[in-house]
Design a protein around this nucleic acid. Sequence first.
DNA 1: GACCTAATTTAGAATAATTATTATTTAGTA
DNA 2: TACTAAATAATAATTATTCTAAATTAGGTC
Lengths: 136, 136
Amino acid sequence: MDQNIQKLKDAGLKITPQRIAIMEFFEGNKSHPSINTIYENLKVNYPSISVSTIYNTVETLVKNNYLLELPIAKGKSFYDPDVSEHDHAYCVKCGRVYDIDPEKEKQAAPESLRGCEIVEVRKTYYIVCGDCRKTF
Amino acid sequence: MDQNIQKLKDAGLKITPQRIAIMEFFEGNKSHPSINTIYENLKVNYPSISVSTIYNTVETLVKNNYLLELPIAKGKSFYDPDVSEHDHAYCVKCGRVYDIDPEKEKQAAPESLRGCEIVEVRKTYYIVCGDCRKTF
DNA sequence: GACCTAATTTAGAATAATTATTATTTAGTA
DNA sequence: TACTAAATAATAATTATTCTAAATTAGGTC
């Protein structure tokens, strides 16, 4: 059975053409699109689709761990269908987001970053802090 | 001479009470405030200050590397006056941002994260990509 | 296959964060 | 003190996101 349909079923979600279209748009997509980019792309073949649906579906997919939400730059988030553990590179000039191959990253000069000028490296732990573990 | 005044002079910026107030607010401040938090706090003793000024000043301080802009969560950025190399922890429940002590981080179980549940670790390289190095 | 119901979609309003615009004010210099 | 460029403040405009409510539809049941 189609992978996307299976994923929706597994998550107990209804199979809708909108969800399928969004999931298909992400298949093998390494461009890390924003909500608006997804919308603009889908609109071409699916003029009736609504931005709300993109937001709703993306939120649902993130919650079910089928998509990663990347708040890498100010203002808006990017989304990545590759939920396996890997890092990202964000070009501060053009705004493109690149994947870092976890294998290559172990190298002293990671191949994925060849030809790039590294401006800064940021690491963030997404946690539930001590206070919140007590409270919730 | 006062550290903040010196910083502004070094950057070739005018010494204004607004800038001083904003910089003083950040002195020793480990709370990683958002623009709105800065505004709400300063308004108390400086009712005439404008949000635009907060945006302008913060942007200027970031450009001069006196402040770090942290787009850690969807929607808005946080700011950190500690521009030395260190990582952050973001609580997905309460939204607080914590500093990670670079020394303690080297430990197998970093002290700064004691009592926390680590949901995910994200690393991002802020770069100028190959294409952009050629073009710009 | 028709029917039912809850889930989903849609459009648009509302909110929030940020950027842009412009007139007024002010810091720093002559 | 006067001048000028820089900075501030108020507000409009833009962009991203969330909310609301009415209409539609997927998927189960008869």
